[in-house]
Every structure is written in C-alpha cells, then in structure tokens.
Design a protein around this nucleic acid. Structure first.
Lengths: 222, 222
DNA sequence: ACCTGAACACCGTTCAAGT
DNA sequence: ACCTGAACACCGTTCAAGT
C-alpha cells in the first residue's frame, strides 16, 4: 500500500534507463564489453534480464550509451584556448580515459551512433581549432589525424599482453621460442635491446608521436 | 576400400587446418568477424561444427590465424629501400588491406598473439628503418606512430555509417534532427559545409596525416 | 584417423502473464 | 506501470560413440 514497493534486493527501488546505463558502465569496467551480458547486468541490478527491456530497446542501445558516456570524462578544450597546448592536453586526457575503460576502443569501431557527449566533445575540439585560425579543411585534417593517432595508439597499447616488465619478458621469450629468432633480427633487437630495457615508457612513446603531429600542423597553418 | 572416402558434399575431401582457416577468412569477409560462428563455418565446409575441433583447438585459434593471414597481403618494404617512400607505400597498402577485410581492425585490439606473417611484417618495417639510419629508439617511435595512425584512421573510417554521398547526407540529417543544431555549431559547419561537399576524400585525408608524420620523422633524423 | 549426436551451459529477445 | 516465466533460436565446447 506504500509507494515504496518490495525493495528489489540491493538497489534503490524502481529501475530507470539511467540506472541501467550506469550499471552497464560499471559492469563493462569489471568484465569487459565482450562479457557484458543482459543476464549479468540484470543480476547486478537485482532484477531479471527481461526487466531491462522495459527500460531500453535492446543491448545495442546500452552499448551506444556507455560509449557515449566515456566522452564526458575527457577534458574538453575551450574555444579561446591556444590550440596547441589545448590539443595536447585533450589528447592526453582522451588516452587516459580510454585506458581507464579498456572496452571503449573496441566498441568505437562498431558503433556509428554518436550521442550527446560525443557530439559535444567533437564540437569543442573543432571549435578550438576554428577560433585559432584553422580553415575548415585544415581543421578536418587536424581532427582526423589526431584522433586516428589517439585511438590507434591505445589500441596497440591494449593489444600488448603485458603490463609489467616481468610479464613483458615472459611474453617476449614465448614469442621468440616459437619462431627461430634469426628469422626476425630487427624485431628481435627491438624487443630485446629496447622494449625490454628499463626506462621504456608508453607515455613517452605516445607523446613523441603526438608532438610529431602537432608540430606538423603548426607548420601547416603558418 | 578406396582412399577417397564418402565425399563430404562440396569441398575436396578431408578437412585440414589450412582449409578451415581459409574458409574462416572467406566467411569473415562475407559476414564479419562478429557473425563468424563455428556452426556457419562448418556448414560452409560441408561438415558438422564439432568436426572443426579435430583440426583446431578452438575458435580463438581460428581468429588468431585469420588475423595473421591479413599481414601477408600487405606490401612489404625491402630493407634497402629509401625509408620515406617505402613507409608511405606500405602504409597505404596496409590501409587498403584493412578496408578489404573490415573485420580485421576489431580483431586487432583483442588478439595479442602475433603469428608468422605479423612478425615478418614487423621485421621488414623495422629493418627498413634501421638500415636507413634510424636509431633503435627512433625506429620504435616511428613504427609506433605510423601504425597507430593507420589502425586508428581505418577504425574511424569504418565507424562512419555511410559509404556513398547520399548515405552521408541521410545520416547527417538524422544526426542533426536528433539534437538542436545550434548546440554544435562547429560540428555542424564541418558536416554541412565540408564533409558533405563534393570532393571530400578519405584518401586525401589519410595521406595528409600520414605525410605529417613522415615529414616529422624526416626532421627528427637529420 | 576422422567425423558426429547428444548434451551442457550459455547468449539476446519476445510475449503473454502477473502484480 | 513495472516486472517476470517460459520459450525460441541461437552460441562455443566436450565427450562418448560411430566408421
């Protein structure tokens, strides 16, 4: 008889689209996008899987929504910022966000439905370039080049199957054991003499390529 | 009594790992990696799904193999080539290959098990850089930057939900209808005044960013 | 040696039914 | 208005069994 009906276990009472999406984002962080299932998501919310369909159309809507939500975490530039440091800061922030949500990159290349946050992000980036004197054409080139680099870099970074130095060593040895090392001398020296050495840093690697692009753009506009 | 036992419908007689992989690659091209299932693959081979497990350990082995196979299609540079045109040619070839096999990029960020073809490719690219005077460190930077750019660019290109100009127009209108256009003025002008205009070319866009990186690298070594 | 039927533990989704 | 049970058409994989 009271409005607060049978509390469904854990969460605050009735479900809503917002709560479904928020839980989906958490679940993706925990288990990855590939293992995000409607049944697991429902369980996390103390509900049966079919209940979700009352609040969202289908799983695709959920995936679109959590991908869009990621863009809210990226530090946006202001149009009046100096473009170069602004682009640099935003690129670094974007990489951090993508590394924090390892499932995001893989969703990106399959979901062509940008949401509010995605469009706000793109608009802010383009705005900063335009108010800094970039032509429409050059702004397109810049946006395309920088973002391709960010997503591609994180993709490669995540595909590497190790995070610590010991893991790296083990993997490299496994790889080298599988094939005669002499067949791949250049790859071998790169792994043994460079990547495995102390001091190798993904951050430095990322910023080197980023600055290559930003410096190139700077030359293009002057 | 004859060695040629009951022909299994279509294919040449007994199955083999090679035939399974080849069929998987064809199937992926037809239906995408997401829809590549053991059952469909078996059907294509005129066999039951369980038979596949006699020849491969599991589906992951198949995915690793077809991804590796892609690298055989990329035009490799020779170590004695001049690095800049060689890197340019190879990057353009890699993009073509990835566009030909649209499922490849999505596999890349989830399969950290390089095969023979992948390692041969990496070795050739690194070799060309090293014999052209790149230090180990700079070769790593160059390889990382160029390949991040290639994969990221293709990823973005594939995520765009249109191939023809009419499709582009329809999608853009749908996007703009969903949200008040005035909220995203810079994004709006980019789509309406630039991307939708005749003459916009992904090829040009790709090569602009690629040359930005290659020119930057050239300056780095001198 | 090579293939398969039956089975298991999963999926996303629909729909009629419950409160 | 909101949730669910039962069901459908799928998955990948195992294992004992067939030839």
């Amino acid at each position: 008889m009271a409005p607060r009906r049978k509390s469904t276990g854990k969460g605050t009472s009735p479900l809503s689209k917002e709560r479904v999406i928020a839980a989906a984002l958490e679940l993706a962080d925990e288990v990855g996008a590939g293992s995000l299932t409607m049944r697991k998501l429902a369980e996390k919310l103390g509900v049966e899987a079919m209940s979700l369909y009352y609040h969202v159309a289908n799983k695709n809507e959920i995936l679109d929504a959590i991908l869009d939500a990621i863009f809210n975490e990226i530090e946006l530039p202001n149009p009046e910022d100096n473009w170069k440091p602004a682009m640099r800061k935003r690129a670094i922030s974007a990489r951090e966000v993508l590394l924090r949500h390892k499932w995001a990159v893989s969703l990106m290349d399959s979901r062509p439905n940008p949401g509010m946050a995605t469009m706000t992000h793109h608009n802010a980036v383009l705005g900063t370039l335009r108010t800094n004197g970039f032509s429409l054409e050059l702004a397109a080139h810049a946006f395309s080049a920088i973002d391709a680099y960010i997503y591609g870099f994180v993709m490669q970074e995540e595909a590497l199957p190790f995070e610590t130095e010991e893991e790296a060593k083990a993997v490299a040895e496994g790889m080298m054991a599988q094939f005669p090392i002499n067949d791949f001398p250049y790859l071998g020296e790169m792994i043994v003499d460079y990547a495995l050495k102390a001091g190798y840093s993904y951050n430095d690697e990322f910023e080197f390529g980023l600055d290559l692009i930003l410096d190139g753009l700077e030359r293009s506009i002057s």
